[in-house]
Write a protein that binds this DNA or RNA. Structure first.
Length: 894
RNA sequence: GGUCGCAUAGCUCAGCUGGUUAGAGCGCCUGCCUCACAUGCAGGAGGCCCGUGGUUCGAGUCCACGUGCGACCACCA
């Protein structure tokens, strides 16, 4: 079988994704003999009309790594995919298509919603198709959409149930209003931006008040001071009358803890209708609520002669009027934070409006307890603190939105008798028998339905098999930016309606940023489009790049260059496998037998040192990867694999294999290669599913040409994940190979330093004092010749008198290269070695001081002392060797 | 104002429970088209591990304080 010279992802990716999906392997039912509990995740549903960005790519890659890993370990894996209707985001997009808000209103509700649905049908599969390109192994047969019939039923059940339980209420309260989007927003949907403003000091009769929003003074219904503020104590409880821009006004003076006596004058004007803090003060003191700004952002009739003015126009006008009347005492530039709409950036107007709210405290309490008791675990753990802090101070959740796209609120008002009906099914008449019901025009906050996602997708409120089998889910993978929006709400809803937490583990990953750590944004122009990367580098490269950078608790800083490194890795794997396949041509059944024996934990009798080394290193990697994945240390797993595959397998073993394949051990070497590659491809599969599948198919087919059937699964994705074969660990082989590598490196190093032409062999002599070591290494000496293009004569017990010019000493092996013919500039070399001697002596000084330390010798564990002693010995040996080299070099120079 | 995170090579970062010579990728320099791979191979330069103090036989790793970044939360008008 011939492979192309370099890896071309496109064809491979399409082919295998289709096969996996058609065989039904993404479904948990595909595992017929489970070896563990089900492993369940729900996807954080992307916006249905969205397009894949790097955040999605990271999030879904990490989930898929776990899904594929757990599946290969024999667990039934259910990963539920789906999309979110994303109320406001989607409505805005479609509204733009039809020509703006006015055009939308002209269309009417029904026609517009119809239009959104057709847009959803048209483009709703874009994001899921893009996810497929990443290779995600979701169970598409269970795909859900938050506006599906089933999920809508869940939403309605939850709403009505909470209403009946007194946890949902309707009320006139101060909410965050976006003048542009024309809807109420929850506290979470308000972002705060630092802004340069002005602080105006305005005269209120005997008092002076500072404000950044003079227009709101039209809605003032009190003045407030701190109860302990001596300056104003006499005024508390009285009323003050004073001149304003629009004539005389009388306001009560109240005392409230919320006032900071050290800020400004210590007097606050209280505008309950347009400020959160003032609203709360108003509640405490029973103040009048006077709304002066309307939902259109213009001043209401209550604003008197300012009525009809835009809020910011009004601000200017009032300031001018105050100045004219001498009521403006002072104005100073002032930096402060302004609340803006998270969607459109328009300054939020707090105003009083009739909205629906969820009473949150009774829901938050069990959700807090569940995390405190460890029933749900945050990874990394410190995110639990963020969660606590928010949940402990959470305010009631405003859930109604003045939009058309979303779950309609299941509440009806009778136009005849004003009765309110909240119902699971659409009612036809009110309790008083009037058939004049009108449904509340508002829809629910998008996050209301997302909060039900872990169980609504499993069929709730019906007690389905899926719900019984797969709830609570095992793992949720998401970004910290939606801990409040989403994770917290799922916790509350899951506990309330299913009696258990929605997930056991929550893995919180970082944000994808550019190389400078900036958030990726279109306006900054630093966005890396995952789709472009998929085209140029392939899904596997993107996946393992993201995985390798996903260190726990860190943001992922990504650049195209860094992904290229992993594209190269994919190509490296491709070519390494190509090399193996080229040598399988002449393989007989013996190679497969060797591989099978190794798979059973048995060494072939004639295994060489490098054979034992690479297998032992592989098993070490198997253990490391498994441990890392179990602990969600994705980057460690990816790095271990990268390091092993490239810098051990390709750099060293494949080079060693070349001579072995040409000699008597060819069949055994083929067997080792088969074993190692087949196993490595399985190990890598969760990270790089496509290329591993393609290569694994070829390797198993070629390697086990006879009798592959039954020996392997149909596909690497349903093959078992490697478990460490402890019998194949060989510490001694690892240590000896280290020596060999050290010797080869030393020779190469010297060749390079002395500019020895590549074609010219170097004469090398090796000495090892220890007899056993000599015996072990003698067999592999020819390798030194091949790998370093050296001519080793033998491995002697000690250098002869003429050879006292050793230049390297590696763990008991001394390396001598006669320098006479190699050195052009002995002076420079002398200086280099002198520097080296200096370094070694400095280090030796430190180690010897340590050994002279009584406390260390008495208290440190024996192994540690032994290690240090061994190190001292090595350093001494090296110092002596270098000394001899120096002597010799100096004699050359003269 | 509160809480949390981060500070290690030119850049971006690993370094888990303290214990051999602090690692990787990219970038840079040198030499190689060596029969799997130039998306490659070999070699090299480059680090008071932010500062101060403490715990310890031993600190990049633990503790305290400081400095500098970053994030989140909060009703300072």
């Amino acid at each position: 079988m011939q492979l192309a010279k370099s890896y071309d992802p496109t064809a491979v990716e399409q082919k295998w994704y289709r096969v996996w999906r058609e065989r039904g392997w993404f479904r948990p039912e595909a595992v017929t003999q489970p070896t563990g509990d089900p492993f369940v995740m729900v996807i954080p549903p992307p916006n249905v009309t969205g397009s894949l960005h790097m955040g999605h790519a990271l999030n879904n890659t990490l989930q898929d790594v776990q899904a594929r890993y757990q599946r290969m370990r024999g667990r039934p894996v259910l990963w539920v995919p789906g999309t979110d209707h994303a109320g406001i985001a989607t409505q805005v997009v479609v509204e733009r298509q039809v020509g703006g808000a006015a055009a939308r209103r002209a269309m009417g509700r029904e026609a517009f919603v119809e239009r959104v649905w057709s847009w959803k049908k048209e483009s709703g599969s874009t994001i899921t198709r893009q996810l497929c390109r990443l290779g995600v192994s979701c169970d598409w047969s269970r795909e859900r959409f938050t506006l599906d019939e089933g999920l809508s039923r869940a939403v309605r059940e939850v709403f009505v149930s909470l209403y009946e339980g007194g946890l949902i209420y309707r009320g006139d309260r101060l909410i965050n209003w976006c003048v542009n989007c024309q809807t109420a927003l929850s506290d979470l949907e308000v972002e705060y931006r630092e802004q340069q403003g002005t602080l105006w000091h305005i005269r209120y009769g005997p008092l002076s008040v500072a404000t950044v929003r003079p227009e709101s003074k039209l809605g003032d219904t009190a003045l407030a001071v701190h109860p302990d503020d001596e300056r104003y104590r006499a005024l508390v409880g009285t009323s003050v009358t004073f001149e304003t821009e629009s004539g005389p006004l009388t306001l009560p003076v109240i005392a409230d803890e919320a006032v900071d006596p050290t800020f400004g004058t210590g007097v606050v004007k209280v505008t309950p209708a347009h400020d959160q803090a003032d609203w709360e003060m108003g509640e405490r003191h029973g103040l009048e609520v006077k709304s002066v700004i309307g939902t259109d952002g213009r001043m209401t009739a209550a604003a008197g002669r300012y009525a009809g003015l835009d809020r910011f126009e009004c601000r200017k006008q009032i300031v001018e009027d105050l100045r004219e009347r001498g009521l403006l005492e002072r104005e100073e530039p002032y930096r402060h934070r302004v609340g803006v709409c998270y969607r459109c950036g328009t300054v939020i107007e707090p105003l009083v409006s009739r909205q629906w709210f969820v009473r949150i405290a009774p829901l938050a309490e069990p959700a807090l307890a569940a995390v405190r008791e460890g029933r749900t675990r945050f990874v990394p753990a410190h995110w639990a603190n963020t969660y606590y802090a928010w949940m402990e101070n959470i305010r009631d959740w405003c859930i109604s939105r003045q939009l058309w796209w979303g779950h309609r609120i299941p509440a009806w008002t009778c136009t005849t008798c004003a009765a309110l009906v909240v119902s699971r099914t659409d009612p036809t008449e009110c309790p008083n028998g009037h058939a004049t019901l009108e449904q509340d025009p508002d829809v629910l906050d998008t996050w209301f339905s997302s909060g039900l996602w872990p169980f609504s997708t499993l069929g709730w409120p019906d007690q389905t098999d899926d719900l019984r089998r797969y709830y609570p889910t095992t793992l949720l993978v998401t970004g910290f930016d939606i801990i409040f929006f989403w994770v917290a709400r799922m916790m509350m809803m899951g506990l309330r309606f299913c009696g258990d937490v929605p997930f056991r583990d929550v893995y919180i990953h970082g944000l994808v940023r550019d190389p400078q750590g900036q958030k990726m944004s279109k306006s900054k122009g630093n966005v890396i489009d995952p789709l472009a990367i998929l085209d140029t580098c392939g899904a596997d490269a993107l996946r393992i790049a993201l995985t390798a950078f996903a260190a726990m608790g860190r943001d992922v800083k990504l650049s195209p260059q860094r992904i290229e490194g992993y594209r190269n890795f994919a190509n490296k794997l491709w070519n390494a496998t190509r090399f193996v396949l080229m040598h399988l041509g002449g393989a007989g059944p013996e190679a497969a037998r060797v591989a099978d024996r190794l798979a059973g934990g048995e060494w072939p009798a004639d295994a060489t040192l490098p054979d034992r080394w690479i297998v032992s290193r592989l098993e070490r990697t198997v253990a490391a990867v498994g441990e890392a994945l179990d602990a969600y240390r994705f980057n460690e797993a990816a790095s271990a694999l990268y390091q092993f595959a490239w810098h051990e397998l390709c750099d060293w073993y494949l080079e060693v294999a070349k001579p072995q394949l040409a000699g008597a051990g060819a069949e055994r070497t083929r067997g080792v290669l088969l074993f190692v590659f087949e196993r490595l491809l399985r190990l890598l599969h969760p990270f790089m599913p496509f290329i591993t599948e393609e290569l694994w198919q070829v390797v198993t087919a070629e390697g086990w040409r006879a009798g592959r059937a039954g020996r392997f699964a149909e596909s690497v994705m349903v093959a078992p994940y490697p478990q460490q074969l402890a019998a194949l660990r060989d510490e001694a082989a690892e240590a000896d190979m280290e020596r060999l590598i050290g010797v080869v490196r030393a020779v190469r190093n010297l060749r390079s330093e002395f500019n020895v032409p590549p074609g010219r062999p170097v004469e090398v002599r090796l000495y090892a004092a220890e007899a056993a070591l000599r015996a072990r290494l003698t067999d592999v000496l020819p390798l030194v010749a091949t790998l370093a293009r050296a001519e080793p004569l033998a491995l002697a017990s000690e250098p002869g008198p003429a050879d006292r010019a050793a230049v390297e000493s590696i763990a008991g092996v001394e390396l001598i290269i006669p320098l006479a013919g190699l050195i052009d500039d002995p002076g420079a070399e002398v200086r280099r070695v002198e520097r080296e001697v200096e370094k070694v002596e400095k280090e030796l000084g430190g180690v010897e001081a340590k050994l002279a330390n009584r406390q260390f010798v008495e208290r440190a564990p024996e192994e540690v002392i032994a290690e240090v002693e061994e190190k001292a010995a090595l350093l001494r040996e090296r110092r002596d060797t270098l000394g001899r080299s120096l002597e010799r070099l100096r004699s050359l120079g003269t």
